[in-house]
Design a protein around this nucleic acid. Structure first.
Length: 425
DNA sequence: TCTGGGGTCCTAGGACCC
DNA sequence: TCTGGGGTCCTAGGACCC
């Protein structure tokens, strides 16, 4: 880390030196599809959802027409009518992702996946064996290309924040090593929105102060940035603008990591990121509806999906949140915390129904409903309080039977009776 | 035929307890 | 007579990420 020039805060003392790689697949979903179908080579490819969906991934050919992740599919088709449009195949992406993670794991044990297509690697311990960050980055990129037939980009730095920004600048199919001494020079000319965790709203806030680049923010008094963004967030953005970031790669464990970037606690090397904090599901209707029966049926389906995943993960939860998005895209959430944690479909749905009834919707046009369960804890060790008159294991046993059947015959084979269409036996 | 679905974390106010 | 703070839990909304 370079010493900041006048106006910058001092770097944190006694920081353990690290070398962090951020590895990010290039146009991951589109690249996997193209790899498996050579006729797509050189063709604009868009991976996305149904008619109300958004673009999940766009090949670089499609990006040349202005197509980006996150834009509505309808707009994407207008921008690039000649594109090949594909539905996502998550099972395939997961398989490729696992293989890529195996490659990472052979380079260093400290790997922190952020999603299917990107991960941080702390390679400090591998430098002696494999060479510097540039050599290790080249090795990873060559192996991913040779073994998986897709390309990735690598950013290397001594902080995760800078490594993340660097990989993006290296895209596609490139790599960028930012030595500590070059961090400030690298960051300061960039638009502030390039910083990990600084999104559109924050960019707009800073724009109001006339701050456009990372350097603008760095050379603005910390207190001013804090007034604009809030004390904690403002301080962290100001730090990041100087390349100061003491978060470490939290490797060795599960897939969880904060996607906002900031509040990731400065974990210990190799620490376990820990269990999931919540499990949820939501769904946008093909067309808006105001029919309470339709809404409740969808909420039941989503509840069953969520609790099945909870049982598979062997967690129970206490806090149930119902989400409703209206036709005008305004979104509300209503939460209720149960006295005892549960993973039982029937019990969670009871709470969902109560919360939903409390909304008092009067023929409002609804676009989306969702269910989420928070306050999770491991199921083992949780002893259930039987309510007076309740049959022990009644509903829970029914759920387990559903889970077993779903495992054998597929999710569609077993579902609550009210989800069967009219006229079905 | 605008705007998915899966998450994480923060903020801020009120209740409640000590 | 007037006036406490801190901690924790709960809830609603919002920002951000891929």
């Amino acid at each position: 880390m370079s010493a900041p020039t006048a106006g910058g805060p001092a770097p944190p003392p006694d920081r353990v030196p690290t070398t962090v790689l951020h590895v990010d697949m290039d146009a991951f979903y589109a690249a996997v599809a193209t790899r498996d179908d050579p006729s797509l080579q050189g063709v604009p490819v868009i991976v996305g959802g149904g008619h109300r969906g958004v673009v999940l991934s766009a090949s670089y050919e499609a990006r040349r027409s202005g197509v980006r992740s996150g834009i509505p599919m309808t707009r994407a088709r207008r921008l690039c009518p000649e594109a090949e449009v594909l539905r996502p195949d998550y099972a395939l992406y997961s398989a490729v992702s696992r293989s890529v993670l195996e490659i990472f794991g052979q380079v260093t044990p400290v790997v922190q996946p952020l999603s299917l297509d990107e991960a941080f690697l702390d390679v400090q311990g591998s430098v002696r064996l494999l060479g510097g960050p540039a050599e290790i980055g080249a090795l990873v990129r060559a192996r991913v290309h040779d073994e998986q037939g897709i390309t990735c980009s690598v950013g290397a730095a001594d902080t995760i924040g800078v490594a993340k920004v660097a990989s993006k600048r290296a895209k596609p199919d490139g790599q960028l090593v930012v030595p500590a001494a070059d961090v400030v020079g690298f960051l300061h000319p960039l638009p502030v929105g390039e910083l990990w965790g600084v999104g559109d709203k924050t960019v707009a806030q800073l724009e109001r102060l006339g701050l456009r680049t990372v350097g603008d923010v760095a050379h603005t008094p910390r207190s001013t940035v804090q007034r604009a963004l809030g004390r904690a967030f403002g301080a962290q953005v100001h730090d990041l603008a100087w390349g100061i970031d003491d978060r470490l790669v939290a490797g060795g464990g599960g897939p969880r990591a904060s996607q906002r970037g900031f509040p990731l606690p400065a974990g210990v090397l190799g620490s376990d990121p820990g269990p999931d904090r919540s499990v949820g599901a939501d769904e946008t209707f093909g067309r808006d509806t105001d029919d309470p029966q339709v809404l409740l049926r969808e909420l039941l389906r989503l509840t069953a999906k969520v609790t099945a995943r909870m049982r598979a993960a062997e967690v129970v939860g206490r806090t149930v949140t119902v989400k409703v998005r209206f036709a005008d895209f305004t979104t509300i959430t209503r939460t209720r915390t149960r006295s005892e944690p549960t993973d039982v479909t029937h019990e969670v749905y009871d709470t969902v129904r109560q919360v939903f009834a409390g909304l008092g919707l009067q023929r409002a046009r609804v676009r989306l409903v969702g269910v989420r369960v928070e306050n999770l804890q491991p199921r083992r060790g949780v002893t259930r309080q039987l309510v007076l008159g309740e049959r022990p294991q009644g509903w829970a046993e029914a759920d387990r039977a559903v889970d077993r059947a779903a495992t054998r015959f597929g999710d569609a084979a077993v579902r609550p009776a009210s989800l069967l269409g009219p006229g079905r036996p």
